[in-house]
């Protein structure tokens, strides 16, 4: 349990780094590290398939896409970077207050431990994806297609601009 809490804290740390860093490249790396930590958590929680997907897609494929997009961008000048960093920190002034409010809410409500049920685990990814979550798989295909159209729309515009 203690290890899991420690891993969760590390994951939150990486996630915060991804938000607060002023370099996109670092943010992409921080996101990959967040996903990698989540993968370890998933393996520890006896969810190897979810862990494998998280590792391959979220910690692998997505950072590659991010980094390839970032490589197409121009870097902003240093003074502007500093100005933006200060603005960004100001924008999140309320974050500690939100955390305090949530903490107080949980303290005030005193949530009792729930009657938690362990979901049925099927160790066959084919059964899970095709028999149980077929509709979600179809949704995933649609999401990928929408993403493909997004790339088409944006990149074709770039091509036109080059002309």
């Amino acid at each position: 349990m203690l290890t899991l809490v420690f891993l969760l804290l590390i994951m939150v740390g990486f996630a915060l780094w991804a938000i607060f860093t002023n370099l996109l490249l670092r943010a992409a790396i921080a996101l990959a590290l967040t996903s990698a930590t989540l993968t370890i958590i998933m393996f520890r929680l006896d969810a190897p398939y979810a862990g494998a997907f998280e590792l391959s897609v979220c910690a692998g494929l997505i950072p590659v896409i991010f980094i390839s997009v970032i490589s197409l961008l121009q870097r902003i000048p240093l003074p502007e970077q500093i100005e933006r960093r200060q603005k960004r920190l100001k924008r999140f002034w309320y974050l500690p207050l939100v955390l305090l409010a949530i903490g107080w809410l949980f303290y005030a409500i005193k949530p009792v431990p729930g009657n938690f049920i362990r979901p049925e685990i099927i160790n066959d990814v084919r059964v899970v994806l095709w028999d149980q979550r077929r509709l979600d798989l179809f949704g995933q295909i649609l999401a990928l297609l929408a993403g493909a159209y997004g790339v088409t729309i944006l990149f074709k515009e770039n091509k036109n601009n080059d002309h």
Binding site: L135, D136, G139, A143, A146, Y149, G150
Partner: peptide
């Protein structure tokens, strides 16, 4: 999942 599909297409 379908909310996300709809929203993603709407963003574009």
């Amino acid at each position: 999942v379908f909310i996300e599909v709809t929203a993603l297409a709407s963003f574009l």
